[in-house]
Design a binder for these strands. Structure first.
Lengths: 343, 343
DNA sequence: GCAATTTATGCAACCGTTTGCACAATTTAC
DNA sequence: GTAAATTGTGCAAACGGTTGCATAAATTGC
């Protein structure tokens, strides 16, 4: 049987014991200059003895700050996101903040529900990576109206008036195409994600630029699309392999798509990294265990993206706290990097 | 430029507008029977119009409840844990609770730091899966003393006086060994995790029972150990393969270990699922993409473990709230299941 | 028609901490 | 030796919502 009234010491408790006012105790605990050395010491000593811990609920109520930030992202089982979360957590813990987590599972309704629930629990700010099916951004605007700053990362809405961190895929993609061309491979396809995604548009544009820089022809047929479901992935790959001039290299929207595409290629008895080559985005740690894997991945630095998104968020929170107007939108863009995954 | 004083409506605001007392508004919003129908309607209508949302900070301060639970686990990039988190999140959201997340990364100091930080932010309870290097449980006891209930899941301390959910590996392991024996494979090894882990002790014991039930001899040499680092995993496997009567089946502590072990086997030109068979715990979704994978995995139902751990936690929180003594330790044990991963 | 009961509302304290202001005590200035 | 400045402390209000108790008004009982 376990029962015991929770009786954490409070400032009043300390004040009563030392026969001084609570306000004096409060100031002493904060090393306020107007409190004498002796009093400060007496207070701090007793606080230590009693294991005093300030009641964060009371403080957050009084200060109108919760010392929580919310993180909303599609899916923590994707290593990309769980890595980003490390970055956020690490930055938050240096600022003595806690992290509330919500997974949207790419479901816009769930996304909205989580967002509102975090708003109501008065998070001081949010870090968001938008789900791939989200088209309506009203609930994000709602949070802004409530003075809850939002910083997006990686999957960001296609708008100018937001704070975000993201990764510029350009260099990675160029290096990838260069690498293929060096090997004499010029028939390069792209399987892209849903057309409404910023990430998709970006990939397509950069893919196009990469071809151009290498003086390769642009063939619309070599661009496939998928909704990123397993079936969609497979179908897109099947369609590409049916082409008259079958591609010998395929750039895939992400690693999970690459897995499906590679599986289809193998079913059709193509030898990976001989008959056909793959280049993917992100960089699953699991690749090293697989024989048939992309020849390279474009690294997008999730830890840094998360960490810096949190940094931006805390600067916004501080500005709001000090009633400073936020003058412009903070946007950090990292450069991607091509990582060879073979050998 | 974005600036705008946050001015969420409060109960006092509503009271002033309707020229009634805040207490009346409060009661009306809760459909208190002593408030007349008309007043209740007037209040609720205005509340809706103003988009009133109760200030959870104020409520949590007053009620001495934060409506947050903390989740502390080793590593969200392991699918097992991120899946468990789903279960927790889903249960929490039905109870209007938020989830604070912390990853220990198997570092006892980080674990303790997160735990104390959650204590100070006054979580109403915690769900914990202990890191594999943790030997000291003092900080957990500390939380209990502060009346913050803890429910453990999966990686649980070896103690009787705790609440937990876990998975009984017995049936899964027996089925696994039976399956191997059916195939005529009797030289079955186990690569186990660190000896101090409950999970390791359990696996070893059940492995032993499984052999016994099948009248197989118990050979100590067939049990390898690893600290679960990549190097440790590889070495354990290399040692096993050096044995005179080389094992033809290997049960691995978890999927990540299986990955390393399989890689070593392949380096030594063994054909997986022909020369040598593997059985693993957990069930990485990624297996289906790999040619060389364990013939079966023992499923441990992370979603259910998380969900039920949360359910227990909320029942404990309720009991504490109502000053009911907690009479005994709630412990839910699920039955594992063997999942064939081939074909 | 007056007391007893019911119904509906308001008052005020409280949760723990912070902070502007007042004020007493001490020191400094001239 | 008195005015001014400095130092150290306390008072009280505030943050937003809840709740026990008092009380006014309406209704019922006899």
């Amino acid at each position: 049987m376990i029962t015991n009234r929770n009786t954490q010491p409070t400032i009043k408790e300390i004040a009563k014991r030392l026969k001084i006012a609570p306000s004096t105790v409060s100031r002493a605990l904060h090393d306020h200059p107007s409190i004498s050395w002796v009093t400060t010491m007496r207070v701090q000593k007793l606080a230590q003895e009693l294991n005093y811990e300030p009641n964060l609920s009371a403080i957050s109520f009084k200060q109108r700050k919760s010392f929580n930030i919310g993180v909303l992202l599609p899916n923590l089982s994707e290593v990309f996101f769980s890595t980003a979360l490390y970055g956020i957590e690490d930055m938050a813990s240096t600022k003595k903040y806690n992290v509330l987590i919500g997974q949207s599972l790419d479901d816009p309704q769930r996304e909205e529900r989580i967002l509102l629930s975090m708003k109501n629990s008065r998070v001081d700010g949010m870090i968001v990576s938008v789900g791939k099916n989200t088209i309506n951004y009203d609930h994000f605007d709602l949070l802004q109206k409530c003075n809850i700053p939002i910083v997006f990362f990686d999957c960001i809405p296609e708008r100018k008036d937001i704070h975000f961190t993201a990764c510029n895929l350009q260099i990675g993609m160029l290096m990838a195409i260069n690498k293929l061309v060096e090997k004499g491979i010029t028939n390069i396809a792209l399987i892209n994600g849903p057309k409404q995604l910023v990430a998709s548009k970006q990939r397509q544009q950069i893919y196009f630029q990469g071809l151009k820089k290498n003086n390769l022809p642009y063939d619309e047929k070599l661009i496939g699309f998928t909704d990123l479901s397993k079936k969609g992935n497979q179908q897109a790959m099947i369609d590409l392999l049916k082409l008259e001039n079958r591609p010998t290299a395929i750039i895939t929207f992400n690693d999970y798509l690459a897995l499906d595409a590679i599986a289809i290629a193998k079913e059709q008895n193509l030898v990976i990294n001989k008959d056909i080559f793959f280049i993917s985005f992100a960089n699953l740690p699991i690749w090293e265990y697989m024989d048939d894997r992309p020849m390279a991945s474009i690294e997008q630095f999730p830890y840094k993206q998360g960490e810096q998104a949190a940094k931006i968020l805390f600067s916004l929170i501080d500005s709001l706290q000090n009633d400073q107007p936020i003058m412009d939108y903070q946007q950090i863009i990292f450069e991607s990097k091509l990582i060879a995954t073979l050998q």
